[in-house]
Computed example of a mutant assay.
Amino acid sequence: MFRNFFLAIAFFYVVSVLTIVAGVFVLQLQFEIFSIVSLLFIALPFALLLGWMFSKIAIEPLISHFETLERFSKETLHELNIPVSTIKTNAQMLEKGCTDEKARKRIGRIASACELLEARYDELDYLIKSQMQKERIDTVAVAPLLQERCEALQEIYPGVTLACDLEPISLKLDRMGLIKVVDNLIDNAVKNSPKGTTISLRLKAKRLEISDEGRGMDEVELFKVFDRYYQSDDSLPGYGIGLDLVKRYCDRHKIGLSIDSTPGQGTTVTLNLAEVAEDAG
Rank of each mutant, 00 (worst) to 15 (best):
M1H: 13
N4K: 15
I9R: 06
F12V: 10
F12A: 07
Y13T: 07
Y13E: 12
V14C: 10
S16M: 10
V21A: 14
G23L: 12
V24Y: 00
V24W: 01
F25E: 14
F25P: 00
V26W: 13
L29I: 14
Q30Y: 07
Q30C: 08
F34Q: 09
S35R: 11
V37M: 06
V37L: 10
V37T: 09
S38D: 11
L39F: 09
L40M: 11
F41N: 13
I42F: 15
I42W: 09
F46R: 04
L48T: 09
L50F: 13
G51Q: 10
M53Y: 11
S55L: 07
I57D: 05
A58M: 10
E60D: 08
P61H: 08
L62H: 06
S64F: 07
F66T: 11
E67W: 08
E67A: 06
E67M: 10
T68C: 06
L69H: 11
L69S: 11
E70C: 02
R71M: 06
R71I: 08
K74R: 14
E75A: 12
E79F: 09
E79V: 04
N81H: 13
S85T: 08
T86H: 08
I87D: 00
T89G: 06
C98Y: 00
C98P: 00
D100H: 09
E101L: 02
E101Y: 01
A103Q: 10
A103T: 13
K105F: 03
R106K: 08
A111I: 03
A111C: 04
S112A: 15
A113V: 02
C114A: 15
E115D: 15
R120F: 09
R120S: 08
Y126G: 00
L127C: 03
Q133N: 10
Q133G: 07
E135Y: 03
I137A: 01
V142Y: 03
L146V: 09
Q147K: 11
R149L: 15
E151R: 13
A152S: 11
A152Q: 11
L153R: 04
E155C: 10
E155T: 12
I156S: 04
P158R: 01
L166M: 12
E167R: 06
L173R: 02
R175A: 13
R175W: 05
M176L: 12
G177K: 02
I179W: 05
I179K: 14
L185G: 02
L185K: 04
N188D: 06
V190I: 11
P194D: 14
S200A: 15
S200H: 09
L201C: 08
L203E: 07
K204C: 04
K204M: 06
R207S: 11
L208G: 02
I210Y: 06
I210V: 13
D212K: 01
D212R: 02
G214A: 08
M217E: 08
E219C: 06
E221M: 13
L222K: 15
F226Q: 04
D227I: 04
R228S: 08
R228P: 00
S232G: 14
D233H: 13
Y239T: 10
G240M: 02
L243T: 04
L245E: 05
L245F: 14
C250H: 02
R252W: 03
R252M: 10
I255D: 00
G256V: 05
L257C: 03
I259V: 12
S261H: 00
S261K: 01
T262R: 07
T262L: 09
T267R: 01
T268E: 02
V269C: 05
L271T: 00
L271W: 02
D279H: 07
G281T: 09
